[in-house]
Nucleic acid binder design. Structure first.
Lengths: 191, 191
DNA sequence: CATTATGCGGACCATCAGTCCGGTTGATTG
DNA sequence: CAATCAACCGGACTGATGGTCCGCATAATG
């Protein structure tokens, strides 16, 4: 099966412009400052364009989030250990949470906005499912007598933009990641 | 200082009507089915009344949630062990999570709606802070070398209406609570 | 250059949270 | 039982937003 049909050049250009505009608005004002009207205006594009490309608000933020985490995703899939396959469970978990934590800490407002936009379908988001599968596997491997699927949800639930902002002091930007790692290690400890 | 001034009779009546209307809409349709227009209409009350009583959407849902958890709150504060003070840490934790889990399982849609409405100020909600303090204390007591404050946030983060709906099969309504208890026990295990 | 389908823009719509103020009513006092 | 007045009420109104729609433009193709 060949690709559907190449994307038209202006479409590519516009998608980039929209994504850029979104991230700019996101860093300028809070997450609720990103209305789709504003995004379209700043991108120099019609509103319809934004919706055709991204479906809805949630899709737009999801796309941005995915762009930010693509590198981690590939590294987890095919990269060298400890992020990629091969390392012992606990080391792999630590490496993964280090990566995901860094992304989250650097994109707290985006995370908040995304969480707000995806009301109920958050658990159907392919990115979420990917992270969840990965963590589930790790937990199932490390703590076979616990509910690995639930633990994966629990660890991911903590990646909440507002919580991260709430508990990250200016002088210790990685406190959140360390805390998550510590928690995961406590859960991985074999009983 | 005497009480501010007794609430007028019609005010009391209206508050009740609004709360009832809210819970009815909540069970009928999803959480986004509860618009304040609809609440007011169903309660047979003007929209302004809803806002004067509850401030905003978040306040309304908060009030409903607080009503549902008042009993647990009192039992934790003054009740007999293991919910109230006196029992060993792990038993008290289990009892608390059993109570909170039951409330959450029975009010998943309310929880979702509330989470949606309280965007960033969720962590300032007095109810949240109460539960957080309680869990923090328990963790600090049981696992002094972990970040108790963070663990408390982590456990509470899991009380997400959508997650609960997502992982509660019809034939096992308490699966969520059990999983949370199990996780808490794993975190409490002294190292 | 002609043809076509893909993409574009922005007016338009429905909905919603929250405000405001003229009118109403419950409590209180003599 | 008036009479007074603050508390309260209702619902029209506002501003903003997410999302739709369709006639027009334009990139790709041969």
């Amino acid at each position: 099966m060949p690709e559907q049909r190449a994307e038209r050049a202006d479409a590519v250009r516009n998608r980039r412009a929209v994504l850029r505009a979104t991230e700019q608005l996101l860093t300028e004002g809070g997450g609720d400052h990103v209305s789709l009207d504003r995004v379209a205006a700043l991108a120099g594009v019609g509103k319809g364009t934004v919706f055709r490309r991204f479906g809805n608000r949630a899709g737009l933020l999801q796309a941005l989030l995915e762009e930010r985490s693509r590198e981690l995703r590939d590294a987890v899939r095919n990269g060298p250990p400890p992020l990629g396959p091969g390392a012992p469970t606990s080391e792999r978990t630590l490496a993964f949470l280090d990566g995901l934590g860094a992304i989250a800490e650097g994109n707290a407002t985006l995370l908040s906005a995304h969480g707000q936009a995806c009301a109920a379908d958050k658990y159907d988001d392919p990115s979420y499912q990917l992270w969840h599968r990965h963590l589930s596997t790790l937990f199932a491997d490390g703590s076979p007598d616990l509910d690995a699927g639930f633990l994966a949800h629990a660890v991911l639930a903590v990646f909440d933009g507002d919580l991260i902002r709430h508990m990250t002091p200016p002088d210790d930007p990685r406190r959140f990641t360390r805390a998550v790692q510590q928690m995961a290690m406590a859960l991985l400890r074999r009983d």
